[in-house]
Design a protein around this nucleic acid. Sequence first.
DNA 1: ACGAGATCCTGTCAGC
DNA 2: TGCTGACAGGATCTCG
Length: 273
Amino acid sequence: MPELPEVEVIVRGLRAGVCGRQVVSVDAPWPTSVRGGADRLRELAVGREIRAVRRRAKLALFELDSGAVLAAHLKMTGRLMVRRAGQVCREDPYLRVALTLSDGGVLTFSDVRRFGYLAAFAPGELASWDFWAGLGPEPLELAPEAFAERLAGRKAQIKALLLNQQIVAGIGNIYADESLFRAGIRPDRRASELSRAQLKRLGTCLRKVLEQAIRENGSSIRDYRDANGNAGAFQNSFNVYGRGGETCPRCGTTLVKGRVAGRGTTWCPECQR
DNA sequence: ACGAGATCCTGTCAGC
DNA sequence: TGCTGACAGGATCTCG
């Protein structure tokens, strides 16, 4: 479940292996993983140089010299890697798309559950993509006051709002639970019941948890690997996520596992109110 | 306009 | 041992 920190780590790891290379060919053994179709991807990418790789929300973006952009969403089980030509594992049954590069490297997109996708946008086209246009601000660039302002008065459960990409972009289940724990807020509280100070505190905690996760190379739960195939370490820093039934690291109370906003959710009934 | 819940997808694991 | 069902969750869709 790559969220903002994992995608950030992946993007940083990809840069050295793809920037400045041309896309020589596109192989799409599972064409439905390419939004708009493999032919469209070929049309826009083949013969073009990858100028930059960056992240927005949970999207990895490859900017081509034509102004076209390739966007990858890893969803639950997607992986992006750059490998030398001989290292592409033919037995990888989950390989969905492979871009061969001018230096012999291969940018691969694998995805067990096929929720993820690669999408190609012609120059200027990205802005008219509804999902892109609707994305909220980047939490690492959002001052806690402005974060609080975006949530204030909303009647939805605070966790549902954190997961809503239009309010703040890039947060998923892990960092929603971890930031709520740090802020001492129950995930099922309505934003409208919380004080401005509590919301601001949540904004601060969210930034801190994301920054720490990036420093620790992301969280590896089952599928996540960075661009070099390495696992992250932040899963060892979880306070609540995946720890239902264990004890709260702050007060020792048994952590509660339940369902909030349709997602598995863990919190401390003592520390979070 | 907003919120809530179902849906997609497959590997893994608990329980019988 | 082998089967069944629950579970994992980001974004989208439908319904209220």
